[in-house]
């Protein structure tokens, strides 16, 4: 897949709450083909202490409007600065980067599990799965209601469950304690993104129940294109670049 370096226009920058925002961008021409699970390296201007690009998951793609949506958590100076981007400003992206999910052939039903901002790469994934006639179930978890993101956006693609640690929404506890997890074998695959501890626990459950499980990692990166070799993940086959061999890995390939 050809990678591009392009300026995209901000068409909307919507604060979800004080911690998260949804940034909608539009390409001047036709968007390149983008696969679910891929990401973009975003150049942050006006942030004097950021030097490198910021790797951000593709949240959603609207091809007929040439729109690319990013769901972003304010974590450091780069993502805090981007929260102030105004409609009409442009943002330079290197994209699309990374691999995609590789669910088994004949998959009929998939469980998506997102923790906090980890729901980001799962919306375009849900859209594509649904387009392919695969049943989508989504479980969204977080510390509290403020960390449960984009619940309504997932609803058109299938059933959505939630869990919070503070009991403010859905079931109480971690996503791994949710009742939907009691019958993991009802799904042909589990795709997840979120805090590493969550993905590890979920991966372990999936392995125990022999359910196909893929995780999306977010190791610190520089180039995003496999040149600098800093974002490596230790796998059973040695160090692999999260930017080019990932960000999606089968949990069985990791040394977790």
């Amino acid at each position: 897949m050809k990678k591009h370096i392009q300026d995209l226009k901000v068409i909307e920058n919507q604060a979800i709450n004080s911690q998260y925002y949804l940034l909608k961008l539009r390409a001047s021409g036709t968007l390149p083909e983008i696969l679910p699970g891929q990401f973009a390296e975003v150049k942050v201007d006006k942030a004097p202490n950021t030097f490198l690009r910021r790797p951000i998951s593709v949240h959603d793609v609207v091809y007929d409007k040439n729109e690319l949506h990013l769901l972003i958590e304010k974590k450091g100076e780069g993502t805090i600065t981007m929260a102030d981007l105004q409609e009409g400003e442009s943002l330079n992206l290197v994209y699309p980067l990374g691999n995609t999910w590789s669910i088994p052939a004949k998959t009929e039903s998939v469980l998506l599990v997102g923790g906090g901002c980890g729901v980001a790469p799962l919306l375009f994934t849900a859209r594509k799965l649904a387009e392919n006639g695969i049943k989508v179930t989504t479980l969204i978890g977080g510390r509290g209601t403020a960390n449960l993101l984009r619940i309504d956006a997932y609803k058109p693609f299938g059933e959505v469950f939630t869990s919070t640690e503070d009991s403010s929404h859905g079931e109480t506890g971690f996503v791994t304690q949710h009742s939907v997890m009691q019958n993991l074998q009802a799904f042909d695959a589990v795709l997840t993104c979120g805090p590493e501890a969550m993905m590890k626990a979920l991966g372990k459950m999936a392995q125990e129940q022999k359910v196909h499980c893929e995780v999306s990692l977010e190791n610190t990166m520089a180039c995003g294109i496999g040149a600098c070799l800093v974002c490596v993940q230790d796998t059973k086959e040695g160090h692999k670049c999260v930017c080019t061999d990932g960000p999606v890995f089968n949990v069985n390939d990791l040394k977790w």
């Binding site: 030097f51 190791n219 520089a222 070799l229 800093v230 490596v232 993940q233 160090h239």
Partner: peptide, 17 residues
Amino acid sequence: QGNPYPRMAETPSGMLN
């Protein structure tokens, strides 16, 4: 195989690898 992760730190106007 190189060194274990993490092996990069962003720094003012540069990076450590």
